[in-house]
Amino acid sequence: MEKLTVSSSPHLRHSDTTAGIMLDVIIALCPAAIYGCILFGLKAAAILLVCVVTAVLAEFLWNKALKKPNSIGDFSAVVTGLLLGMNLPSTVPLWVAAIGSVVAIIVVKQMFGGIGHNFANPAIAARIVLLVSFPGKMTSFLEPVSDTVTSATPLAAEAGTYSAKMLFFGMHSGSIGETSAFLLLVGGAYLIIRRVISPIIPLCFIGTVGILTLVSGGDILSAIFGGGIMLGAVFMATDYSTSPITAKGKLIFGIGCGLITFIIRKFGAMPEGVSYAILLMNILVPYINRFTLNRPFGKRKVGRHHA
């Protein structure tokens, strides 16, 4: 007689694996990363390499030290390192990049329980730690294909310095991976087609910033294509464990990110606010999830006043 295996639900399984999804993200990031290396030279490539290697090594050593199953095979550390590297200006010393990766993997990710348990996007949180710790180093950018150091990305530059084409295709200063809106959008489209991410968060995020900038009389082109919005909205705000589950939640999350970004850019002392916006909204995700949970079919809606 054949043996019947009895197991608890779920019985339907999907063939998606963490490693597969992470590989898709890496593929989607590649065009913009390679373009950044061409734009800012070998130093940019070295930073990306240091970030990725340090991130993987940190994850490996942490698991080793705590006698946990090794998790570098799921490529999530590679994604974190790559994203962090793309978020750094090409002028930072390599040891700063390495510190960033260690902070991202050890402090933000592993100390809170590893993949799926982090309260904030590791790359974003690490970038903010570096930005706060080394403010000068983190805000000196290179002009493309030259060695001229500038502190002004298109966000801080005078309107009209860059043409729409330069902004869209990425001929301007900025972090290694944030310059080419076009290539980032190509990567985002790949992820949406592969159903790795849903388009709701990026659309709401970019749309909110665009509309608010337009309404307040700002330069919409440099606002959307000039800063870190494309990279942040497509690749970092959509991180699974730090973004809401439901479509309604994603809508709120995306609009919130856009709103905070706009407020920081318009009224804050800093030219860019994408990282802070995503970090703040990351922290709100558990609350957004709680208030946007889908009601199981047939369940009575329980009013708040009954509680």
């Binding site: 040891w95 510190i99 402090v107 730690v129 706060v132 710790s133 080394f134 403010p135 180093k137």
Partner: peptide
């Protein structure tokens, strides 16, 4: 080496 200013700020204190 340039020190990490974050340790002088409240987040560094909590950490």
């Amino acid at each position: 080496i340039s020190p990490m200013i974050i340790f002088l700020l409240p987040p560094g204190g909590f950490f």
